[in-house]
């Protein structure tokens, strides 16, 4: 008896607009599979950010919101307060969450909002063409740090998983990466754990996922995955930072 591994119906049958080798598509599949496996498709909604994933409302076969830049956690809060027995996740990039949306994500955690956040950290602004993000590494060249990020000029990158794990309302905070098979497996497991945390009503859950951005890193997809291991993981250690 053979089993077939193929696309889950929760991931809509539409071509993704992401660049070749972009991590978004991988995480979209994982989130969709988790929603299917937990059997919550009928009671699940999602909030797309502003950034490369702004079109995510086209990709999940569930009710979707498209939020203003950085405001997805607030939108999700409004939804969850109206439908406390439904489930919702925000899907955000590092510009959306770690820059303009820091107040919203910190306060969603602070309130112990029973929502799940999928946070894609690719150390750059993708959609707008490769600018420096709060998560851009020291020395990393971007279109707004052409000589490499200078920490004396604009500080060192922000570690959101550690920061949010210090907030009592956070019930599950983890950081994973997409660069190896073990890490891919751990990423999906963490996403599932985050949704289970929400379903158990324990509080705020977030998974920060180190993800490749070949186009704006100026690296081939395979090379980008290597760079995650060589440069990002040393600065952004993987693991579970909070688990209630």
């Amino acid at each position: 008896m053979s089993t077939v591994i193929k696309k889950t119906p929760v991931l809509r049958d539409v071509h993704l607009h992401y660049c070749p080798g972009c991590g978004h598509g991988i995480v979209h599949r994982m989130v969709s599979e988790v929603i299917e496996e937990l059997g919550i498709q009928g009671k699940c909604a999602g909030v797309a950010p502003v950034g490369c994933a702004v079109f995510a409302y086209n990709y999940f076969e569930i009710d979707m919101y498209e939020a203003a830049h950085g405001r997805a956690p607030a939108v999700a809060t409004g939804f969850k307060r109206v439908h406390p027995d439904h489930y919702i996740f925000t899907y955000q990039g590092d510009g959306d969450l770690a820059s303009i949306g820091t107040a919203e994500i910190v306060h969603a955690a602070h309130r112990g909002e029973k929502i799940t956040t999928i946070f894609i950290n690719n150390a750059i602004y993708g959609m707008t063409g490769g600018q420096m993000a709060p998560t851009t590494l020291v020395g990393q060249k971007t279109t707004t740090s052409p000589l490499g990020r200078d920490k004396d000029h604009c500080g060192e990158p922000i570690r959101m998983a550690e920061m949010l794990s210090t907030i009592n309302g956070s019930a599950f905070i983890a950081r994973t990466a997409l660069n190896t098979t073990p890490n891919l497996i751990k990423t999906k497991a963490a996403i599932k754990k985050a949704f289970e945390t929400q379903m158990a009503g324990k509080g705020f859950s977030m998974v920060e996922i180190l993800s490749p951005c070949p186009t704006n890193w100026g690296k081939a997809p395979a090379e980008s995955m290597e760079w995650i291991g060589e440069a990002m993981i040393p600065y952004y250690p993987l693991g579970t930072f909070k688990e209630v």
Binding site: A68, R71, A74, G78, E104, H107
Partner: peptide, 13 residues
């Protein structure tokens, strides 16, 4: 600013 976006979420719900 967060409040109006919560309104967006709740109204949309």
């Amino acid at each position: 600013l967060a409040a109006i976006n919560m309104v967006y979420g709740a109204g949309g719900a």
